[in-house]
Each structure stands twice: as structure tokens, then as C-alpha cells.
Design a protein around this nucleic acid. Structure first.
Lengths: 329, 329
DNA sequence: TTGTAAGCGTTATCAC
DNA sequence: GTGATAACGCTTACAA
């Protein structure tokens, strides 16, 4: 592969001049520049990243770390990659080991850092030790951003789930629904908070549909919860579900009970997974703003890497989720 | 960050000796080795990839290139990454630009190669020029593997769709179905071939259900095709669909027509997307062997990079798809 | 405006 | 067995 030296020889200038002409930094005679660029083009020059990183002690790689693969993660990473690529960065992907052992996760992070990324984008699932991991990343000289974590003390691009569910409940009320239930566990707060806030504003009755806990697997837990709903009297006429997967399992249960969607019960999911679009009927859902989240994460990383001072409000940012209306509600 | 020099100073040996002790290559006194390892551990040494790559002219990065993001792609990449990471490689992700302009795609590949990957894993969608791209990759000194392409002259890990559909049709016949239809376009061959082969063996009637071409969008094209099926006399009692998305759009159409699945019509999808699992009813599907495909792709890349001679049968390989039985059939 | 020389952290070549 | 030393391709002082 061609190097600066090759261009220097081909164009008759020194390496230094060639370098400056190519990067457009410093004073270079216009005639020299064109001759250098011409030579570089003819020879098919591509700068050597390894040499550059070695010399400048700067990396141009961002590691995206997730403990599991997921459609929603990927959408965020893809959006992030578009931005980072434009700034000359490469995104590398590191998927977690299956183990839940804490020790292993530390080694895992060490492995990530051994590649000397300029930045690390972390997905959740690291549990309460997240702060320890981000500290370790910073200590290694890299910057980090976390995707959508509940942990408070870390820089993160968070999704405003509360407001999305709040909007959805108002949407349902506007469509004439009066008995709007929430389907999910009581201890998962953010969505539930949005639900409760809207219900209170609308002076409606708060109705909670819980999973059927004796079920054999996760899917049946929610599918069989539909029976609970079917037997309620009066029956809810709308459901906001915790997630798309929960909503679709529940939808199967509604079919089992002979209840029609949206005629008998309107149904709104959460997440905006592709499966919602292909459900029968296509499901209305509060979509995660993946593109915006990925973009924001990239921008924050770039700023932190560039050494910009922390803004007064900190690096963390909230992005709103948005209702995607289809046929189920 | 600590370098070999630091360890050399700390342990009292030369850089060269330290290097050999750490890599376990060549003759090193056992006592020296332990002292060196100790010093390296204490100092927290991590080798500098950039220096190593610069010196050896070898890259330890594999670029996974896709023109679009997709759950199935990601599952393959994730599997590939597990293997490659164990061999010290990093997988970096490059998603295509939206444009369909040929020129842009060439530049795009140039950009990929400018990062000097040791190997490139390509997903389809590059059209008939695929061979040109793989040639360009090899010319740059990198190795390549293509995921599941129809193009003949390139090394690829291919999915045996024919056999998967063949198995599914036999499965349907064994469950007593006698009027098994294929839902899809006539010009997409691989799945259709498997269908036709099985139908011929079983001496059943070949029935093709085509999309409703006047529909407004892709989804409705298949959803409205259900009407066609509903009006057939006698009506098919089972469907093998071209894909999961097609099958689910069609399923919505079946619901529209008041037909029950699997009681009135059994339905089998293709791809093994997560949406199939969450359909109502959970959908039987011929799943793509993503894990195996990714693993094979990684193994082939590693062998090609290691300079192993091309085996007599070439580098390409076929992996079987497999029927995942759920409730829809 | 351009050229020379040093150095980033490795690995490879050669002596000792 | 071990130690100097050069080289990979680039950037950055500094000199011309």
C-alpha cells in the first residue's frame, strides 16, 4: 500500500510537504498542492490509521458494548455509526459473554479497553456496578456514554418513557376510551408514572392488569393475563402495555378469549419493535426514538473526546418517545 | 499507558526479552519469564495494537458491511463476533448509505478498505457488481466472505432454503394437510423449488397464491392476498409463505376474512424472526441458522487470513435451515 | 513555503 | 538466552 513516502517520490516533494498538502493544514503553494493531490490520486493513497494513531496517541474507534443483541440496540448503534463515520471514527461491536458472573464482566471491560477505543458506548444490563465501569473507562483515557440507563450518576442518553405513555393515554381518552388499564408489573415505574399522571388528569379510574405469575414461561405469563382482563366487570376498553412483546403475548391471549382488537379492547404497546408493525392488527405503540438516541450519543461522545467542558446541565440528555398510531388503537 | 519499555525498566531486562517472555515465543529463561510477567501484571500492561499492526502490517479488524440494518444480519454478526473475538479480532460495523447510486457504493467500499481491515464480511444487496467488490477487497490485501448471496462466483456462507421449505411441506403433509399452497412470487426460486420438490414427491397439487399487486404498499400486497385464498374453492388448508413478514401480513388478512389459524388454514413462515414468536398464534417458521452462518463465516475468514490453501470444494459452504414448530401449523 | 530529523510501541534482524 | 538496533508510516518540532 502506498505511503506518504511513495507520493513524495512520485511528486518530487518531501514527505512533510505532501502531508500538509493532503491534510490542508499550514501553508502550501497552490501549485504544489495540486501536483501532490494528483500524485496521491494516481497512486491510490490511503492514510495508515495505525501509524497515525501510534504517533498521535489518539484512537479513532468507538466500541459499542452490549450484553445481548437486540433490534432496539442495533437501531441505536446504526444511528450512532452514521454520525461517527462522518467524523472519521469506526464503530466496533462487542457483545457480552452469556455469563452473569461479575468477575467475568470486569475482564470483559478490560478486553474492551485493551483495544484502546477513543470512546465506549454502553448498553444497560451491567447492574449496579455501572458507575465502576464508567470510572474504569475514564481512567483508561477513553470517554463513555451509556444508553438509557436508570442509574443516576452516569452520563446517559435517556428515553422519556413517562411522557410517551402519558401521550398514549391521552390519545386513548380522546378516542373515547374511559376504562384504560395498564398492563405490567407494579415495580417498573417510568411508564406507570406516565400512565398514572394521565389517568389522574383525566379523572379516570386507575386499573392495573398484572401478569399471571404461575405461568410456565414469560410469554404465557402475559398471554394468560388476558383471561384476567376478560373476566373483569366492567371490562377495560383500552390497554397500555409495558412493552411490545408483553402486548403481543397479551394480544394472543385476547384472541384466545375471543376478544377483538380494537373493537372490544384497544391495545397500545411500547418500544416500536418491528413485530408491532406486523401484528394482527398492526399495533399502535409508543416507539423508542432510536435514531435520535444514537445520534445524541454520538454527538456527546464526540464532544467529550474533543475535550469540550462539561455543560452546566451535565452531559446527560432526555429524548421523548413518540406514539406511532396503527390499527390496534 | 504502559509500554514494553516500562516493563523492561521495571524488570531489568531488555525490551526484546520482555517481548518474547510475554508472547511465549522463542527461548526465555523460566526465571526471567516469571519476573517479566510479574512486572507486566503490576504495571497493568496492555499491548498497543496500533504499534503492532504498523510493524507487522497485519490488521486485527474485521469489517461487517451491510446496506441496511436487520435483525437477521445482526444475529449473524453477533455469532461471528464471538468467534473472531476469541482469535483477537475486533468486528467493526459499517452500515450502508441509503443511496442506491452505484458510484456511491464504490466510494463506500473504498472507505471500508481505508480502515485496513484484515477481512470484510459482506451482506447482500450489492447487486450484480458483487464480484467487482470482492475483487477490490482482495486486491487491497484483505480477505472477504459474503453472507448468503445468490451470486455464484463469490465465497459465501449460503442458507439452504430449498431444503427447509421441503421439510416444512413434508411436516404439513404429515399433519394431514392435503392442499398445501405456496405464498410468494413466482420468480423467487429457492424456496419455491423446495416446495415443488416436496409437492411432487407427495403427489399433491401445486397451488400458488400470488400477492395482490394493486395494493398501496408492501404490507397490503400480502394482506389482501388473503382474500384471494379465502375465495378459492376448494380452499387450501395450509400455506408455506415466502417470509415471516409476508406470512404475518397474510395472517392479518386471514383475520380480516374471518379465517382461523391453524384450524382453517395452517401457516408456516420463513426466516425465524422474533416477530414470528410473538404472533397470534405464535407462528411456525423455517428459521435461518444465523448462529451457524455467523460462525462459519468467521471460521472461513480466519482460515483465509491465515493463508490456508483453498480447499478443493472452494470456500463456500451451505448450512441447512430448520423448522421451528409453534402453534400456527 | 518547504525540508530534516526524531519519535510513537512494536517486531525482526542480527550480533554477542 | 539475551541485547542493541532498525524499521513500519505517520506527525511534530525545528531549521532552512
Amino acid at each position: 500500500m502506498a505511503s506518504l513516502k511513495d507520493i513524495a517520490e512520485a511528486s518530487g516533494f518531501s514527505i512533510r510537504t505532501v502531508s500538509r498538502a493532503l491534510k490542508g493544514i499550514g501553508y502550501v503553494n497552490e501549485a504544489t498542492r495540486t501536483r501532490v493531490l494528483e500524485a496521491a490520486g494516481k497512486i491510490g493513497y490511503q492514510p495508515n490509521r495505525f501509524a497515525r494513531s501510534l504517533r498521535t496517541k489518539k484512537s479513532y474507534e468507538i466500541s459499542a458494548v452490549a450484553l445481548s443483541i437486540d433490534e432496539l440496540h442495533m437501531a441505536k448503534i446504526a444511528a450512532m455509526e452514521q454520525i461517527l463515520r462522518q467524523s472519521g471514527y469506526v464503530v466496533n461491536l462487542i457483545f457480552g459473554l452469556q455469563s452473569n458472573d461479575g468477575q467475568e464482566k470486569t475482564d470483559f471491560l478490560n478486553e474492551v479497553l485493551s483495544h484502546r477505543p477513543a470512546g465506549v458506548a454502553l448498553f444497560g444490563g451491567f447492574g449496579v456496578d455501572l458507575k465502576r465501569y464508567t470510572d474504569q473507562i475514564e481512567q483508561s483515557g477513553a470517554q463513555y456514554i451509556v444508553f438509557d440507563t436508570r442509574e443516576k450518576d452516569v452520563d446517559s442518553v435517556r428515553i422519556d418513557r413517562q411522557q410517551g405513555v402519558y401521550d398514549a393515554v391521552h390519545y386513548l381518552a380522546k378516542k373515547g376510551k374511559r376504562r384504560i388499564a395498564y398492563l405490567g408489573q407494579q415495580h417498573d415505574r417510568s411508564r406507570l408514572d406516565g400512565y398514572e399522571r394521565a389517568i389522574a388528569e383525566l379523572s379516570l379510574e386507575k386499573i392495573l392488569v398484572q401478569p399471571f405469575l404461575d405461568a410456565k414461561d414469560e410469554n404465557l405469563k402475559w398471554r394468560q393475563a388476558a383471561r384476567t382482563l376478560a373476566e373483569m366487570n366492567p371490562r377495560p376498553d383500552a390497554i397500555q402495555a409495558y412493552s411490545d412483546t408483553v402486548a403481543l403475548s397479551f394480544l394472543a391471549g385476547l384472541h384466545d378469549c375471543g376478544l377483538r382488537v380494537p373493537e372490544d379492547v384497544a391495545l397500545v404497546g411500547f418500544d416500536g419493535r418491528s413485530m408491532a408493525e406486523f401484528a394482527s392488527p398492526p399495533m399502535t405503540t409508543v416507539a423508542q426514538p432510536n435514531a435520535e438516541v444514537g445520534q445524541k450519543a454520538a454527538e456527546i461522545l464526540l464532544k467529550k473526546i474533543a475535550g469540550e467542558p462539561t455543560p452546566p446541565e451535565g452531559w446527560s440528555v432526555n429524548v421523548p418517545s413518540r406514539l406511532v398510531v396503527r390499527e390496534s388503537a
